[in-house]
Design a protein around this nucleic acid. Structure first.
Lengths: 121, 121
DNA sequence: TAATTATTAAACCAAATGGTTGACAATTAA
DNA sequence: TTAATTGTCAACCATTTGGTTTAATAATTA
């Protein structure tokens, strides 16, 4: 039934959605939308230790949402939108699929309603 | 910088992405795409207790992805695509935002490349 | 009324999560 | 060389997660 749809790796979807399920990490992604940031600059807005922020970034990296380039002692992070597209495509696929089903359902309900009206009228 | 974008509730995004970050729950959503299912029928494909499946369904419900109608002793679950649209819209917003930034970056890199070619040629 | 069915609730467990601190390695600056 | 900066690692802690099992509850059926 889902054979029409692209196949997605469960593990990758797990990792991406899990990474997105945290406001700190979503905030970091938003900042990375402006351009590359170092680990400390990404951590700065948050009321947590650098180590904690570093863990968040590692999780974004593991999900494929962020890439890192080490220059000297500074780690530059930038967005890597492929994984994001992955999740987005999955959602879009499901939305299309479900909306189609719901349209059918809506049509059936409307038809039923019309029948009722004719009976009652 | 994100002021152009719709505002999203962090809690709702947490709940939705968290709900989507599990293959069992994504599978249940896929089955619900076919139409309504009872709790036991949703649980049937999975190698886990009914209680465990029931917890998954509760989480989908809490995220607003699933609605439940109790008829006698059976609980009928159906898709409620609003929350899904919520997450999908968020991703789409970010994608647009990021792609715009990346297009600029790509343009800059291309321009640089052209300069190099002129220098080198 | 008693048994069966559909589902949740409660108590428990192991593993994962999100945080802390302190030590460490590497790089840069004085 | 010494000191400061950038970031990770390891150990630890409390809470959440995803599962179990054993009741409990509510609705049907016999």
């Amino acid at each position: 039934m889902l054979n029409l749809m692209v196949e997605y790796s469960e593990n990758q979807l797990d990792a991406v959605f899990q990474a997105l399920a945290d406001a700190t990490r979503r905030g970091m992604l938003a900042h990375l939308g402006e351009g590359a940031h170092t680990v400390s600059s990404l951590a700065e807005p948050y009321d947590m230790s650098l180590a904690a922020a570093s863990k968040h970034i590692k999780k974004l990296e593991a999900a494929g949402l962020v890439e890192r380039e080490v220059v000297g002692r500074v780690h530059h992070c930038r967005l890597s939108p492929n994984a994001l597209k992955y999740a987005s495509d999955w959602l879009r696929d499901y939305e299309r699929f479900w909306n189609a089903r719901l349209d059918v359902l809506e049509g059936l309900l409307k038809a039923e309603d019309d029948t009722d009206r004719n009976k009652g009228g």
